[in-house]
Design a protein around this nucleic acid. Structure first.
Lengths: 222, 222
DNA sequence: ATCAGGCATAATGCATACATTGGAAACTTA
DNA sequence: TAAGTTTCCAATGTATGCATTATGCCTGAT
């Protein structure tokens, strides 16, 4: 039914993206097309097309005579990314709040929040990060602006590696978790101005904390 | 020196994009790869790669057995686009204002504003729109967030056709022009809160006006 | 005339071939 | 040894070939 055609391009795309996000293919890694093609067990053609997409998403750079390079993410990159998130997400949250979504609609976000809390208690940072990610994506999905969701997803992906690295270098995200609960509540209450402000502060804090860590641990690029 | 390699992919990309933006290849236009390839006088390979990029930019849709289609822009699309712009641009303007750019730095924007004013007097709407576009891009460039610039550019391109169509359906953008001057001044003054607010209103007004026109003239998709 | 089924056509997805050319290494030369 | 040449190789950019398969058409049955 919903059997989407699994093509080699999508396969190459998915696998490469996965490799990059999990840092198995680390920042700065570079390889010519033929090598990647062999790695994936297919010809250059589909690999090439997948790489073009990854380049458009800002994960990879195609350098004419020396292959594809996994783009490092610098401190400035992170600053750029967070600046955009800081502008977009509060807006989405406010709009969502204005729409007064029902409890059922918010169930997903509620679950994500819950999971953040339990993961935090269990000390499972991976799970916490996962739930955090889900929370933010769900918010955008509920809001319904597809372009915004797409853009934010792109930014999340670009920032993914850096966030994973800093996850263990920062203090326990206890406050951040609480803020998520507050955000969710304000959305449920329809307090659009409130969420926007809260969310904005949340993002600003997150940005500052992350940048501080990158500086403190001398990690100018990941 | 700056002889960038002109490849067929970039050529195809540029030409197709041009065709689309100028509406010579209108919304909804659809053609299979071989046809486009012949149109451009090259083989399918580079055309394919160019189309993938255009798809990533949201200008085109690749439909498996029936070729590439120039994506129509619906009213909802425009609403999405303007919502994002409303969130991003005021932020950029505020940040720029905070940085207190010198007169020399603002020269480009000043020129663009000037041109908007003279174009308006001359009744040259095309020139006005051009200058308007330049104003907004320059602002983002000055701000320096490359990702934001890229994203906004993408949105501009997506909205381009609709804006061109409505250009003659709306009243003379006299007020809009004045607002640009005000924005520029506030940036020069370093009034970050002021620009943000002003810009935000500007964008909201623009969005409302545009959506009203689309509705009034029954143009649900362009 | 409508509908099911089978067939032909053509577009795609992918592999492969190949000419071009950037860049590194080897080789001079000073 | 440093700088300038030359050579060689391999990666890219592009064209082409080909198997697969979706789509529309044609046929025939109801």
């Amino acid at each position: 039914m919903s059997e989407i055609k699994q093509t080699r391009v999508t396969d190459a795309y998915n696998r490469l993206k996965e490799e990059i996000l999990t840092n198995r293919m680390p920042s700065g890694f570079q390889a010519p097309e033929p090598e990647i093609a062999e790695l994936l067990g297919m010809s250059r053609t589909p690999v090439r097309e997948a790489l073009i997409k990854l380049e458009a998403e800002g994960l990879v750079q195609l350098i004419p005579r020396r292959g594809a390079r996994v783009l490092p993410v610098s401190t400035e990159d992170m600053a750029e990314i967070y600046e955009i998130l800081t502008a977009l997400e509060p807006e989405a949250a406010a709009a969502l709040a204005r729409r007064r979504p029902g409890k059922d609609e918010l169930a997903g976000m509620e679950a994500a929040t819950q999971e953040m809390e339990t993961a935090l208690e269990a000390g499972d940072l991976e799970a916490w990060a996962d739930a955090d990610d889900r929370f933010h994506r769900l918010l955008l999905e509920l809001h319904g602006n597809k372009r915004m969701l797409g853009m934010v997803s792109l930014l999340f992906d670009q920032a993914h590696r850096a966030r994973m690295v800093t996850l263990r270098l920062r203090e326990i995200p206890k406050n951040s978790t609480r803020v998520h609960r507050d955000i969710l509540e304000k959305i449920a209450e329809g307090d659009d101005v409130g969420v926007a402000e809260l969310f904005r502060e949340h993002r600003k804090d997150a940005a500052r904390e992350l940048l501080d860590i990158l500086e403190k641990f001398r990690l100018p690029r990941l």
